[in-house]
Design a protein around this nucleic acid. Structure first.
Lengths: 325, 325
DNA sequence: TTGTAAGCGTTATCAT
DNA sequence: ATGATAACGCTTACAA
């Protein structure tokens, strides 16, 4: 329609400078007029690049993933890369299935949450030479490119605070730890703090459960009906902790007077619930942005692709009080 | 490697019955061995179908969209369709840009939020004959395929409750209504209820703002420093309402004794905040599922593609009380 | 600066 | 039941 070859049209998009202005304008006018957009398949086939990356996350229906992924997507979009999204529901087999699916959809690279997955998933990534970034957990010396924070260290820090408040009888509500290294590291972080403070691990009680307000409440109730009661309940994330606080209220148990509660993540809920939640602040948006930037660098074959360790911050609020002696 | 033509390999995937068992098994064994997956670009090019759909949402960083999109994605995945995601940040120009982008990425169809967008966006969809579903708002007789609930009706219903509690001096904190028909319909719904109850619209005060806890709090504070004060503040969503309740607490204003507050959406926050929030319950997950199902039906050229109107429910909780006379 | 033409990995049609 | 071959829409040497 513009009286030029397909090659020239292609150049108008990919190296506009190599086309003389008058031609380019004529082409682009017609492009606009007929609503032309390049065909992805043809493009991917010819250039062996899709400008698409995939993310497989446990679920979007959790504020912490939603926030990080939103930032991830924005950064990609700024670089003209589109995001394919899939969810695993915390199931490693489903994760592999989704990885396969996104790869066959042409994803140039992937974002994965956490390090813990079956070896055959890593085999597949290796075999197909798929560039990927592991995020939401930082591990020094990881085999994978990696952006995140040290869950274990952060858990140790908040546990140290808890111990400083005089708590010796600690209980933990955690997510199931199989194939969830964030949860496992947080658990181990608390153990580390106890050990190095000379508190016996025998004083540690743990209930593993699913992530929901209700299961947090149920686990809380379980702990509160044991004798003797723990003096503090440390929760694997803020959703569990919020569930615990709601149940405490329903049971007429005063926090932190009768028992202290801590969370992890610092989502909006943490500041809204009464009493406010003592928790670990995690920079979710920066994590998403950094992950996108690293993945883009890897895909661009940049020489100095650096893993990124982000810092967390302990936020002391009302839900942590002194242990009764 | 299997000693067959590419055509036979293709048939092994797409019509396995047309390949004799021994050949098929030989091919699939090698497929497994070398980790082969079909190339998406080639496939899309040859079959003119991508098995990909796109969703453009304002932002994932809002529980209501995250929950609906999660359900949307799950339903798609069950049907072997992958989801491309993009966000507009409530900006209509950016929305069109992202629509273009997802289409050129090969999306077979789209999910869009709400009806309000510039005419040229609809022109583009029409011109390119792109199948799409509008969701999060239901409008009878819409030009678009449509799944959602009637925001205006729901707002009228909650306003009727508010009026039944004796409130005549009503204030509204809303999102900006340009290109946000959900917000506009909610506003108009309240107006409808007032009119049909014979309450003058002069008694209605409105502050439009952005969606955040802070802006909800600021607007609340603004209203509470006017004379006379409104007796109820109806908020465009639960985030704004929660922001208002937090600020009320900080200002030492008792809800609902001094002023009532209502929300919209019924996110987790609504049950967690004290006092609990009176709000409109919206079936976000079912909306996502229905939207996916409708879009899949459209793409399958099903004859009887039906729009879906979902019902909402008014949930009366502590934050709504009787108006002081 | 622009055009020509080969080739990217599939699928679909037609033979065999 | 399988193979040969022509599309599909684009990019990229290379030629003009």
């Amino acid at each position: 329609m513009a009286g030029v070859s397909t090659a020239t049209v292609s150049r108008c998009f990919n190296s506009p400078d190599s086309v003389v202005k008058t031609t380019r304008e004529r082409v682009l006018r017609i492009v606009e007029e007929i609503g032309y957009t390049p065909h992805f398949g043809g493009r991917a086939l010819a250039s062996n690049r899709s400008n698409t990356v995939g993310a497989i996350i446990p679920t979007m229906d959790n504020a912490i993933f939603a926030r990080g992924i939103q930032a991830f997507q924005e950064t990609l979009a700024d670089n003209n890369v589109t995001l394919l999204i899939a969810s695993s529901g915390y199931d490693p087999e489903r994760e592999l299935e989704q990885i396969r699916s996104l790869i066959s959809q042409g994803a140039d690279g992937l974002l994965l949450i956490g390090h813990a997955r079956p070896e055959n998933t890593y085999d597949f990534l290796q075999l197909r030479q798929i560039p990927y970034v592991v995020t939401w957990n930082y591990r020094a010396g990881s085999r994978s490119f990696n952006v995140g924070f040290d869950n274990q260290k952060a858990a140790t820090q908040i546990a140290q605070q808890v111990i400083k408040y005089g708590h010796k009888h600690i209980a933990i509500i955690t997510a199931h730890t199989e194939f969830n290294d964030r949860a496992l590291d947080r658990l181990n972080g608390v153990r580390d703090a106890m050990e190095s403070s000379g508190i016996s691990i025998d004083n540690l009680e743990v209930i593993p459960t699913t992530y929901s307000l209700k299961s947090g409440g149920d686990a809380f109730q379980d702990f509160m009906t044991r004798t003797p009661r723990p003096t503090v309940i440390m929760c694997g994330n803020d959703v569990l902790a919020t569930g615990a606080l709601i149940r405490a209220n329903e049971m007429g148990i005063k926090v932190p007077d009768e028992v202290s509660v801590t969370g992890f993540d610092d989502i909006d809920l943490a500041e809204v619930i009464k009493p406010n939640l003592t928790t670990v602040h995690v920079p979710h948006r920066r994590m998403g942005e950094s992950a996108a930037q690293l993945l883009l660098d890897i895909l661009d074959d940049k020489k100095d692709c650096q893993n990124v360790e982000l810092e967390t911050e302990i936020v002391i609020r009302e839900s942590l009080g002194l242990a009764k002696s």
